[in-house]
């Protein structure tokens, strides 16, 4: 061995190699640089969200009205409580993670096992909550009418409370038939029929004197504009082209479709990070249980996966602010 080593005369000097000026292991440092690049990816998404929001600054949806559901409280307006709860669950799972890392420093296998387990549970609850949030967002609550210009019109009663399409629509007997693949000339089906047709909504709107239209545009007082009865009738007649319930990538009953796109994309990407974090946590958990790190004499792997897990929490702190608060 000795014979093959080339002596450079720099042994023990700064450039002689073998130094670790950052005093961190290779794995930990690479985890940090991965996190840095991932942070830049998320920043790109959030900055793009900010760009679109600034572009539609006077017609963006109000988050309190979009995310106001809480489990078992149907019809109760509960703005942000649920997402605050989700935030707590994630922060708490971060706490159990850092407790696991701390226990690892002291080589306490039982404690590391317990805290890793709690962290995984917290992560699973968080992802489940996010799925529930998506479900509510996709199915929507009140529904709206879309216009030629790609905007939406929502309905309110005289006191400014939102009114759902189902309360407005007057059933009209008609020949609305869904175009299915088996009765066309080619194996291609048409778009699904909306629950309520525009004509049913229009008829119901005309019949109920109390109803008004609320547009996307903000007033000076930072509330959505409510048109007068005459303006509402004229607007509905001139501009409405269809109905929309809930949100997907092309239509959104809450406002600009971009809002839904960013919501799905950013919370989805974050949720995917949580999911992969849970899977990595489970792998590390089993390694702890079978004693791999006990034999290795170091729980540094727990520390590395901990860094990733905290990063996921860190991102959520920003997503929470920019999607739900600001």
């Amino acid at each position: 061995m000795e014979a093959t080593v080339v002596r450079t005369g720099t042994e023990g000097k700064t450039w002689g190699g073998g130094n670790d000026p950052l005093k961190a292991s290779y794995g930990k440092m690479m985890m940090w640089f991965f996190i840095l690049s991932d942070a830049l990816t998320f920043s790109g998404f959030l900055a793009a969200y900010g760009f679109s929001r600034f572009k539609f600054i006077d017609s963006w949806p109000i988050a309190d009205e979009v995310f106001n559901h809480f489990p078992f409280l149907h019809g109760v307006d509960a703005p942000m409580y649920y997402v605050a709860l989700m935030t707590f669950i994630l922060i708490f799972s971060s706490v159990t993670m850092v407790l696991a890392v701390d226990a690892g420093h002291h080589m306490k296998k039982a404690k590391v096992t317990l805290y890793m387990f709690l962290t995984i549970i917290g992560g699973i609850i968080f992802v489940g909550s996010q799925a529930w949030e998506w479900k509510n967002f996709i199915s929507g609550e009140y529904g709206a009418v879309t216009t030629k210009g790609g905007n939406i019109l929502q309905f309110v009663d005289g006191e400014g409370h939102r009114v759902a399409l189902s309360e407005i629509a007057v059933p009209i007997e008609g020949d609305r038939v869904e175009h299915e693949a088996n009765n066309g000339i080619w194996f291609d089906s048409g778009a699904e029929l909306p629950t309520y047709s525009l004509d049913e909504i229009k008829a119901g709107f005309v019949a109920n004197e109390d109803l008004l239209i609320r547009t996307q545009t903000f007033t000076e007082d930072n509330e959505k504009t409510i048109l007068s009865r005459d303006e509402s009738l004229a607007k509905l007649d001139a501009e409405a082209v269809g109905t929309v319930e809930g949100a997907n990538l092309t239509q959104n009953e809450y406002g600009p479709p971009l809002f839904a796109d960013f919501f799905f994309f950013i919370t989805g990407f974050h949720g995917f990070h949580v999911l992969s974090g849970i899977i990595i946590n489970i792998i590390i958990f089993f390694n702890v249980v079978i004693g791999t790190y006990e034999r290795r004499g170091s729980y540094e792997m727990v520390e590395k996966v901990g860094l990733y897990w905290h990063f996921v929490d860190l991102v959520w702190v920003f997503v929470f602010t920019f999607f739900y608060l600001v």
């Binding site: 000026p21 950052l22 961190a24 971060s94 706490v95 993670m97 860094l307 929490d313």
Partner: peptide, 19 residues
């Protein structure tokens, strides 16, 4: 979160600044 949970406060100045 970064300083305490991710232990940045205990890393060297160089690593901290790089990040």
């Amino acid at each position: 979160i970064a300083w305490s949970f991710m232990h940045l406060e205990h890393e060297t100045k160089g690593l901290r600044r790089a990040i």
